[in-house]
Design a protein around this nucleic acid. Structure first.
Lengths: 148, 148
DNA sequence: CTGCAACCTGAAGCGCGGTTGAGGTAAAGG
DNA sequence: CCTTTACCTCAACCGCGCTTCAGGTTGCAG
């Protein structure tokens, strides 16, 4: 069955995401499907692009909630075009840049910092990169959200 | 009380990690403490460095289990010296390099990839950066582990 | 028209990385 | 000495991002 819509199994196969995960994404409002008369999901091909975006964003370390908000900025009525996606990806490029900068800072300071014995929380720039984390206060919830 | 050992509260304050988390790390074997006659934990100052290492590794996206394994490579009998820590941090530098390379690839391909409409799982290099993920097979457990 | 794979829902469960709470003990200051 | 604050254990719970399972329905191939 190679129509203009995809079954959940087909979308799963093409995206590498399990059907259960796709249903989960739908519950959270990240993707959408129409239904057949028999209540089975049918996906438009453009959903593939959404799923792709979701997985990429997860790799960057973004929670599904944030991803949902980002996807919500895509047009409702019509199929998103290149410009729409480009706008979205531009925003994520900035995120990536930030994240890369953080990791580079970590890398550049790691050896010297541990080598000199300063890895003691107090003085170490490494432990509070840019004071971003310090501002969050105690409790780890903030960091470490989408693994990887 | 400013002795040569730290109470759990002091270690928590200095490290920015909650006491409950420190006890949790101990249960998992990431850190160690001696006990007073009254069964309270006392930490050697070097534990501060361990905790610091743990938090840094988490930022890079490593699971506590992996961190424990890494810390296990430190000498048992004696206090780890600079060379010990340097050895360890060298290994993590490589991890950081890998991770940075991945994110840079993601960034460099993101705009072009979405812009050209190829973000379709099939052909997109972005979705399978370096085929590392494809090799894992279906199931997300692998990626997205320690959030952020 | 029948059979079987693929699909459906809802609820429960899992792994991680912790936090919270109850009920009790230790230790430092006055 | 006594009070207050910090600490102890154990068990239960939380949020995230799913998976699994039971019990039932759909839809395409032969």
């Amino acid at each position: 069955m190679v129509a203009d819509t995809l079954t959940i199994g087909e979308l799963a196969a093409r995206s590498g995401v399990a059907p259960s995960a796709l249903r989960y994404y739908e519950r959270l409002g990240l993707i959408h499907a129409t239904r057949t008369t028999g209540n089975q999901r049918r996906y438009r091909r453009t959903e593939l692009r959404r799923v792709s975006f979701i997985r990429i964003a997860q790799q960057v370390g973004v929670s599904l909630e944030e991803i949902r908000d980002a996807l919500a900025s895509l047009p409702e009525g019509r199929t998103p075009n290149r410009a729409d996606w480009a706008r979205l990806s531009e925003r994520w490029r900035a995120r990536l840049d930030d994240r890369i900068a953080l990791l580079e800072k970590l890398r550049d300071e790691l050896t010297g910092c541990i080598g000199c014995g300063c890895l003691s929380m107090q003085t170490c720039k490494l432990y509070n990169p840019g004071d971003r984390l310090a501002a969050e206060g105690p409790g780890p919830r903030v960091l470490l959200a989408p693994r990887q």
